[in-house]
Amino acid sequence: MNQQDMTAKMAQGTGFIAALDQSGGSTPKALRGYGVDDSEWNGEDEMFAKIHEMRCRIITSPSFASGKVIGAILFEKTMDGMVEGKPVPQALIDRGVVPFLKVDKGLEDETDGVQLMKPIAGLDGLCERAKGLGVFGTKMRSVINQASPTGIGAIVAQQFQIGKQILGHGLMPILEPEYTIKAEDREQGEEILKAEILKQLNSLEEGQQVMLKLSIPVKADLYRELVQHPKVLRVVALSGGYSTEEACEELAKNKGMIASFSRGLLQDLRADQSDEEFDRTLGAAIDQICEASLA
Rank of each mutant, 00 (worst) to 15 (best):
I181C: 11
M79Q: 00
T14F: 06
G71V: 02
L31E: 09
A11K: 12
L175F: 12
I258F: 08
H229F: 13
A19R: 09
E250V: 05
M211T: 04
G106I: 03
K105G: 04
D275R: 03
E178F: 08
G132R: 07
A284Q: 07
G168H: 05
D185V: 13
L167E: 11
M257R: 02
E40N: 12
K105E: 14
L214E: 08
E191T: 03
K194H: 14
Y242C: 07
Y34W: 15
G240S: 08
V135F: 02
L116Y: 03
Q159R: 03
E53H: 02
L92R: 03
V114H: 01
V232P: 07
R95W: 03
I162V: 15
D5L: 10
G43N: 03
V135W: 02
T180D: 13
G168F: 14
E205H: 13
E196T: 09
R234F: 12
G125A: 10
K50E: 04
D272H: 08
S239E: 06
D268L: 12
Q228D: 14
Q209V: 13
T60Q: 09
R270A: 14
R234T: 08
E291P: 02
S243E: 00
T111W: 04
I73E: 00
G241M: 08
M79C: 00
F136C: 01
P89F: 00
G35W: 07
S39I: 08
A65S: 15
L201F: 12
D268C: 09
A247E: 09
L201S: 08
E44P: 00
T244E: 13
A284L: 05
Y34N: 08
W41H: 06
G125W: 10
L101P: 10
L126V: 08
V135M: 04
L198G: 13
I258V: 15
S63F: 05
T281K: 05
Y242L: 12
I93A: 14
I166V: 15
I70N: 03
L20E: 00
E249Q: 10
K194I: 08
K231I: 04
N202M: 15
T150I: 11
E205P: 00
E76C: 00
C290R: 04
V83G: 02
V103K: 03
A183S: 13
L222T: 12
A157G: 05
T7H: 07
E246H: 09
D109A: 15
K182R: 09
S260D: 04
K213D: 05
L198K: 15
V156H: 12
S63P: 01
F261M: 07
Q188M: 13
P177E: 09
L123R: 10
G13R: 07
E187S: 14
V88R: 00
P149H: 12
F48G: 00
F136I: 00
E277V: 13
K77Q: 07
I120R: 06
V156R: 10
A65P: 09
L212D: 09
K86G: 03
R55S: 00
R263F: 12
D37F: 07
S23K: 11
I93M: 09
R32C: 01
K50T: 02
I70T: 09
M82H: 01
R263T: 07
R95K: 10
Q159A: 12
R57E: 05
D45P: 03
G85Q: 01
A284I: 10
E108F: 04
K102M: 06
K9S: 15
G283H: 01
D268Q: 01
L74N: 01
D268W: 04
V114C: 14
Q115H: 10
D124S: 14
R263E: 01
